[in-house]
Design a protein around this nucleic acid. Structure first.
Lengths: 193, 193
DNA sequence: TATATTCATAGACATTTGTCTACGTTTTTT
DNA sequence: AAAAAACGTAGACAAATGTCTATGAATATA
């Protein structure tokens, strides 16, 4: 079964038919990108959201000192894109690139709106995704403002173990808002326990 | 015009009639709570989302040392509640209380789902709110992991000037993930510029 | 009005985290 | 196979932030 078909039927309460799925699929375009290639660069408008069939990606922000700050990590069955730019048609402040070679399904804003009109199940899917996303980001903010680096890392290991063997430590450190050096110390301390 | 009526027609693309609004309103119950009283306490399930007609509220998390960490601030025309608990029916880790005397409109999860079924405009409204919320939290996470305390405060003053005269500095400091002492230093430094 | 509480700031000191350099290992590229 | 790049750790030092105590002003409460 196609991963996207599986994915949609996993989240929507009413299953869609194989036939409907073909209409669905026609709104997506396949794209393969190689490691280190960009899906989105700073200053561009995010024209596509990407459903990841295979591979790993990251979204990051480069500050005025040239330091990269990883904002999101993505693997299979996740959506990658900059929502703000995608919805508002404003230039993005983020870069999104492939950390591993990727197979993606791209979709435009217009196609999303069209699919929502045509398939209530898709609309429902998007509502649920936003809901989940809101819950997850709320947790991340809570963790970010109230936990120590040590606890944030422990929390990360608990919640996202599948990221541990896909991204190196300096990327995870950046995602947690700390430096690789601090993460290295935190890990050393944790080992002693 | 009723503030909620105004609010709905501001965000939905199709206007709702005065008559429809009465159906709408019947799903909300009015509640007044006084300063320091709780809308939600830790361990409870969040049964109501609150639309704030008047007043100011805050959501916070209390860590194992007993320290309060402010996660959200709310004023008129904002929605207060814990989405995770509201949707998943799990005990909340947050407290929500009134910082000023408040007038609220409460609505249950069932009523929200019912209104979504009955009024596509309401469904659309919720989608847009989630979209905006996602964009805002994304920005907050970016700020939190990549900005210094000084920049985070400057950013806060830019984005939420209306909070400045509603909440004292130690609350704002907590919202920014720093102590009141650090915020005091940051402000002192900023004055010199 | 008197009293208690909240609030903002300050300074001294401790702790955490960042910065930088270095090194050995592993992985990737040529 | 050789060279280059990426990776993780370590230590020395610097900077940022937290902790604690104190104080005076503003605000709320009795």
């Amino acid at each position: 079964m196609h991963p996207l078909f599986k994915y949609i039927n996993k989240y929507a309460s009413t299953l869609i038919s194989e036939k409907d799925f073909e209409v669905f699929r026609s709104h997506f375009s396949e794209k393969k990108i190689r490691k280190k290639q960009y899906l989105l660069e700073e200053g561009e408008i995010c024209k596509y959201f990407a459903f990841i069939l295979k591979g790993a990606m990251r979204k990051y922000y480069i500050d005025e000192k040239g330091v990269e700050h990883v904002v999101n990590l993505y693997i299979e069955n996740w959506w990658a894109g900059d929502r703000e730019s995608f919805v508002m048609f404003t230039p993005s402040i983020y870069h999104i690139d492939a950390w591993e070679d990727c197979e993606l399904l791209l979709i435009t804003r217009e196609s999303i709106l069209e699919l929502c009109r045509q398939f209530p199940a898709f609309n429902e899917l998007l509502l649920k995704l936003d809901e989940r996303n809101n819950i997850a980001t709320q947790r991340r903010i809570t963790s970010s403002i109230s936990f120590t680096a040590e606890k944030r890392y422990a929390d990360f290991v608990d919640c996202h173990p599948y990221f541990l063997h896909r991204f190196p430590q300096h990327i995870i450190a950046s995602y947690l808002g700390i430096t690789k050096d601090t993460l290295s110390r935190v890990r050393k301390k944790a080992l002693k326990k």
